[in-house]
Computed example of a mutant assay.
Amino acid sequence: MNFLVWAVISWTVAFILVRKIFSKRSFNFCNRIVSTLHASLAVTLCSLTVEDWGCPVCPLASKSSPSQMKTLAVTLGYLIYDLICCLFDNHVNIDNIVHHLVSILGIGAGLVYERCGSEMIMAVWITEISSPFLHMRELLKELGYRDTNLNLAADILFAVIFTLARMVAGPHLTYVTLSADNPLLIKAMAFGLQLVSAFWFYKIARMVRFKLTKRRKSLKET
Rank of each mutant, 00 (worst) to 15 (best):
I104C: 04
Q68P: 01
F29S: 01
L150C: 09
R32K: 15
P183L: 04
L45S: 01
T36P: 05
E142G: 10
Y113C: 04
I104Q: 01
S130R: 02
L60H: 06
C46L: 10
D147S: 06
G144V: 08
R215T: 13
T71S: 13
G144W: 08
L4H: 05
L87M: 13
M207H: 11
V196T: 10
P183G: 02
K211I: 09
L219F: 05
Y202V: 10
E142Y: 09
T174Q: 10
R166P: 01
R146Q: 07
V43G: 06
Y145R: 10
S118A: 15
E114L: 10
A190E: 02
T163W: 10
W200C: 04
V176Y: 05
G108N: 07
K214S: 14
M120Q: 12
N28M: 13
P56Q: 08
M167A: 06
V112A: 15
V160S: 06
W11V: 06
G108C: 05
V8P: 01
I16Q: 13
V112E: 12
M167I: 11
A153S: 15
A165P: 08
N31V: 07
Y78M: 04
H99V: 11
N90H: 10
I161K: 06
I121C: 02
A205C: 14
K141A: 15
I161W: 07
F191N: 06
F199C: 12
V124M: 09
P171A: 12
C55T: 13
K203I: 02
L79Y: 10
A180W: 04
H135C: 09
F158K: 07
T75S: 14
L193V: 05
A61E: 09
S197Q: 07
D181C: 04
L150H: 08
D155V: 08
I9T: 15
I186L: 12
G117M: 05
K211N: 11
I104E: 01
L184F: 13
N28H: 14
W6L: 14
I97R: 07
P183F: 02
L134A: 15
A180S: 15
F27M: 06
L164V: 15
H38K: 02
A169W: 05
I129K: 00
K220I: 13
A188H: 05
S130C: 12
L4A: 08
E128Y: 03
L45H: 03
E221W: 10
T222M: 13
L164C: 12
A61I: 07
D52A: 05
A198T: 15
L72Y: 02
C85V: 02
D89P: 04
